[in-house]
Computed example of a mutant assay.
Amino acid sequence: MSKAILFVCLGNICRSPTAEAVLRRLAEQAGLPLTIDSAGTGNWHVGEPPHPPMIKAAKARGYDLSPLRARQINPEDFQRFDRIFVMDDRNLRDVMALRQSHRLSETATWPERLLDLVPELGLTEVPDPYYSGAFDQTISLCETACRRLITDLQGHEAQ
């Protein structure tokens, strides 16, 4: 059974496209048929590729972000995706506000923080490298959380 996963950050040019690319590779390696996408809460970068320094850092780690283009999350995403992962508390508030403003049903997907998948890290937010410049940290955090997500999904597939 295929699952659909959406990653959300602020502008969809650093963190969420990185998580998308990481999960795409891990799912392919694991043989899991996933639909994977990313979006931003804001519309500033719609249609643009990821931030060039993020593309460069990801490429150095073997991920190609260059084909991805930013888009903004929309109400239909709460029906299309089984899981929606946000990168920080601001994203969580913004996605919850969107969900509530459209009066979506209780069965519509609820957002989750990506790093809640790995509580042992002691972090709840993926810092925004657009401001911090910590592009490698973003990739590492996405890899750690996405590996856990793959393990969780494989566990559900076995049941």
Score class of each variant (00 low, 15 high):
residue 6 L to K: 01
residue 8 V to L: 08
residue 8 V to Y: 03
residue 8 V to G: 02
residue 12 N to M: 08
residue 13 I to R: 08
residue 14 C to N: 13
residue 16 S to F: 06
residue 18 T to Q: 10
residue 19 A to Y: 00
residue 21 A to Q: 10
residue 22 V to D: 07
residue 23 L to I: 06
residue 24 R to G: 08
residue 24 R to E: 13
residue 25 R to C: 04
residue 27 A to F: 03
residue 27 A to R: 01
residue 27 A to P: 00
residue 28 E to T: 14
residue 28 E to M: 07
residue 28 E to R: 14
residue 28 E to L: 10
residue 29 Q to A: 15
residue 31 G to M: 10
residue 31 G to C: 14
residue 32 L to Q: 08
residue 33 P to R: 15
residue 35 T to Y: 04
residue 36 I to F: 00
residue 37 D to M: 03
residue 40 G to L: 07
residue 41 T to R: 02
residue 44 W to T: 08
residue 45 H to D: 11
residue 45 H to A: 13
residue 47 G to L: 07
residue 47 G to A: 11
residue 47 G to Y: 06
residue 48 E to P: 00
residue 49 P to I: 12
residue 52 P to Y: 13
residue 55 I to A: 04
residue 56 K to F: 01
residue 56 K to L: 11
residue 57 A to W: 10
residue 58 A to P: 01
residue 59 K to F: 04
residue 59 K to N: 04
residue 60 A to R: 13
residue 60 A to C: 01
residue 62 G to P: 05
residue 63 Y to G: 11
residue 63 Y to S: 10
residue 63 Y to W: 12
residue 64 D to K: 10
residue 64 D to E: 14
residue 67 P to R: 12
residue 68 L to V: 03
residue 69 R to Y: 02
residue 69 R to E: 03
residue 70 A to K: 04
residue 72 Q to G: 03
residue 73 I to F: 00
residue 73 I to D: 05
residue 73 I to E: 00
residue 74 N to L: 11
residue 74 N to Q: 12
residue 75 P to C: 09
residue 76 E to A: 15
residue 76 E to I: 07
residue 77 D to W: 03
residue 77 D to M: 10
residue 79 Q to S: 14
residue 81 F to T: 01
residue 81 F to I: 05
residue 84 I to N: 06
residue 87 M to E: 00
residue 88 D to H: 03
residue 88 D to S: 10
residue 89 D to L: 08
residue 91 N to S: 06
residue 92 L to V: 01
residue 93 R to Q: 12
residue 93 R to K: 14
residue 94 D to L: 13
residue 97 A to W: 02
residue 98 L to P: 01
residue 99 R to P: 01
residue 106 E to D: 14
residue 106 E to Y: 06
residue 107 T to I: 13
residue 109 T to A: 14
residue 110 W to G: 00
residue 111 P to H: 04
residue 111 P to G: 11
residue 113 R to Y: 02
residue 114 L to A: 05
residue 117 L to G: 02
residue 117 L to W: 07
residue 118 V to H: 07
residue 119 P to N: 12
residue 119 P to H: 09
residue 120 E to H: 11
residue 122 G to A: 11
residue 123 L to E: 12
residue 127 P to I: 10
residue 130 Y to W: 15
residue 131 Y to L: 06
residue 132 S to Y: 03
residue 135 F to C: 03
residue 135 F to Y: 15
residue 135 F to I: 08
residue 136 D to M: 06
residue 136 D to C: 05
residue 137 Q to C: 01
residue 138 T to C: 15
